[in-house]
Design a protein around this nucleic acid. Sequence first.
DNA 1: CTATCTTTGACAAAAAGTGTCAAATCATTT
DNA 2: AAATGATTTGACACTTTTTGTCAAAGATAG
Lengths: 104, 104
Amino acid sequence: MDVNQTTGEILRESRERKGLLLRQVAAFLDIDTAILSKVERGERKATRDQIAKLADFLNLDKEELLIHYLSEKIAYELVDEDVASQTLKVAEERVKYLKSHKPQ
Amino acid sequence: MDVNQTTGEILRESRERKGLLLRQVAAFLDIDTAILSKVERGERKATRDQIAKLADFLNLDKEELLIHYLSEKIAYELVDEDVASQTLKVAEERVKYLKSHKPQ
DNA sequence: CTATCTTTGACAAAAAGTGTCAAATCATTT
DNA sequence: AAATGATTTGACACTTTTTGTCAAAGATAG
């Protein structure tokens, strides 16, 4: 998995390499093929649950796919901001702080 | 501004230091005081536009406040993920990539 | 006690997210 | 070229989230 690939590209490649049809994968996710088609082409975002199911069905590393998916979502949120990189650095500090001060 | 302060805390402190009422600041933002009260106490998130207006009205560094606000939003989105830190690192790479391959 | 300021919670409107369906397009086979 | 099957497209509907108002309750100061 290349970090600068889209999640959709990964999903499509993986599905095609296994010779699976949209219909088959979509059935497993319990959604219409239309949505999966859009997800693979980046026209829609998958949900978190769908990503987990896709990793199962396509035999992809669950954690790796999740990181891919989440980071794409965040990069997309920030890409138009001048301060994107600085924001991500500060966000890292915040996450560290929050994790260490977590209730429980 | 401390990185681990909430945006709401910054806004409240700044407003109070200037002796302004919720009513006055809310009027400038064109919203009900109820919302601003909730924003300051972290019960609601401000919108991006409101952050910009608040920086103006409260004479805060616009960029700094924006980074503060955006990073808080992102940290909040990820804090429950095991893979939060890894995700942020990958997101940084993605942002760099997207910015360098931007249309125009 | 009376003003005024802030907080709270119920509610409403608008926007975003998630999905279906049917028709159109594309590719392959006969 | 027609038929079949896969994918794409776009209109639509439903649900959830976001963003706000309003009025009543709570807190604080004079």
